[in-house]
Structure formats: C-alpha cells, structure tokens
Simulated assay, not measured.
Amino acid sequence: MIVLRILGFVFIFTYFSLSAGEEHQCSRYHYEEQILSKVVRLEHRHELLEDKVTSTTGLSPVGSICNEKQACCPDGWITFQGSCYLFQRTNADFVSAELLCVEYNAHLVRIESEIENTFLKNHLKDLKEAHYWIGLTDVEKEGTFKWYGYDVGPSFTDWNNGQPDNAGGVQNCGVFNYGMAFKWDDASCAAKFKSVCEKKAD
C-alpha cells in the first residue's frame, strides 16, 4: 500500500510539472478543477485497490475504511473518505427521497468539502443523465439553506451561477443539476428526482 501511495504522489507531481506550461491556456479555476478531479479519482482508485486487497487477503490495509472486524459499506454502496454513498435510481420528491435513505439508516448527502463534492460529481457524470437530490433545503427560512434534519448550514457550496434563485417562489430544495455540469441548483421539493444517500462506514 505504501508503494501505491508513493506512485500516486509521483503521478500528481509529474502531472503538475508537465501541465505547468499549459496553465496560461485555460482559466486558473478550470485548471485547478482539473487537477482536483484527477487527485480525487486517484484517491478513489486507491481506496478500491485497498478494498480488493482486503477482500482477497483478509487483511485490513493502513488507511482502509474497514475496521478490524471488516465492517465496511454494504454491497452496492461506494466508499470514499470513511463514508458510504448510495446513488438511488428511484425518482422521488425531496421528503420521500430522504425517507428512502432513512430505510438504509442513512440520509440525503451532506457535502462538507470541495474534494467530496468533486468525487460525487465525477461519479454522477458516469451515470445516466439525471438530477440528484442533496440534503439541502431552505424550507424553514427562505434564503437560509441548511442540511435537512440538521440545524446547520453548509460550510462549502457549489451553486451554479445565479443559483439559488427560488424561481416561481417554490424552489426550496437542493439538487445536483446535470444540465449545469452537476453544480448545485434549487428546485421545487415536490419535483421527482433521483438521490444520493450517505452514511458513515460501520
């Protein structure tokens, strides 16, 4: 596993070195977003490799989200940085989507960092085009978005330009909008979309 980590760092260093001359060709934001996306993909691949090592050898590698009893994420869930994610294919309104997550002892995803957000967006791009609910709503107070069932607002946001805009006065729930490259958008909570559930690894 140490070798994998070293190779990962070498790849990132090499990429930075080779890309330095190309930075002037694109905006700084776009360049940084590309780098972050590659780092996230490498980290996710590293976790997948660790999971494979664990399942074939029965050993728990350093940094694995599995504990000594090999308690990991359930089948069908994707692991990343100690959390489990389920990409629900069932279309449901916001509250129903949350209840679907609760059935798995989870909740609609609460995004806490740019790297987590980038990981989720990268995965969504590989799925069929659709909007996906996130657990963000301002239903209690217009303009003040909080995580549903959790009296705390987001420390990181990725709203698309001009969003949230509460179009028609009825958009109170957050969604990954595929038409906006999966940046955040507000939508009517009654709309029916797919969703992303999240829970901590056991």
Rank of each mutant, 00 (worst) to 15 (best):
R45S: 00
D202T: 03
I2K: 02
K69F: 15
S83M: 13
G179Q: 09
Q25R: 14
G63D: 07
E129F: 02
G58Q: 04
H46E: 01
E142F: 07
N161V: 11
G63I: 14
I134T: 03
G21W: 07
H107F: 11
S195N: 12
W184D: 09
C84Q: 09
K52T: 09
A106C: 07
D151S: 14
Q34F: 05
S113D: 10
F13D: 06
W77K: 11
A181M: 10
Q25L: 12
K38I: 01
K125P: 09
L36Y: 02
L99G: 01
D51I: 12
E142W: 06
I65G: 00
G168L: 05
R41S: 01
G174A: 10
E142Q: 14
A191N: 08
I111S: 11
L48P: 03
E142R: 14
V95W: 03
L120S: 06
K192M: 12
N91V: 02
R28C: 11
D158Y: 13
S113Y: 13
C84A: 06
N172I: 00
L136T: 01
D126C: 04
G63K: 02
G135I: 06
K183V: 04
I6E: 06
F182G: 05
E22I: 10
K199F: 06
S83T: 14
Q88F: 08
V170T: 05
G169F: 00
L100V: 04
I115L: 06
E112P: 00
Q34C: 05
T14I: 13
V95C: 02
G153T: 07
A92P: 02
H44P: 00
W147E: 10
E22H: 12
K121C: 10
C189V: 01
Q171H: 06
E43H: 01
G82I: 12
I65T: 04
R89H: 09
C101S: 05
G168K: 03
V175L: 09
Y29I: 10
N122R: 11
T144A: 15
H30R: 11
V170L: 07
E114N: 04
T14L: 14
P61Y: 04
V62P: 00
Q25V: 02
V196T: 08
M1E: 02
A106Y: 04
V10G: 02
T54A: 08
S55R: 06
A97L: 08
W77Q: 05
H24I: 13
G21Y: 05
K200E: 10
R5P: 00
T144I: 14
C197P: 08
G179I: 03
E114I: 12
G174M: 13
N160P: 02
A106F: 06
G168H: 01
G153W: 14
S113E: 09
N161G: 04
L127I: 15
E33C: 08
E23N: 08
V139C: 13
I78Q: 05
V175N: 08
Q163W: 01
W184H: 09
S113Q: 10
K121E: 12
L36P: 00
G63L: 07
T79I: 13
C173S: 14
F9E: 01
V53E: 00
S113H: 12
C26G: 12
I134V: 08
Y150K: 15
H30S: 08
A190R: 11
K200D: 05
G21K: 10
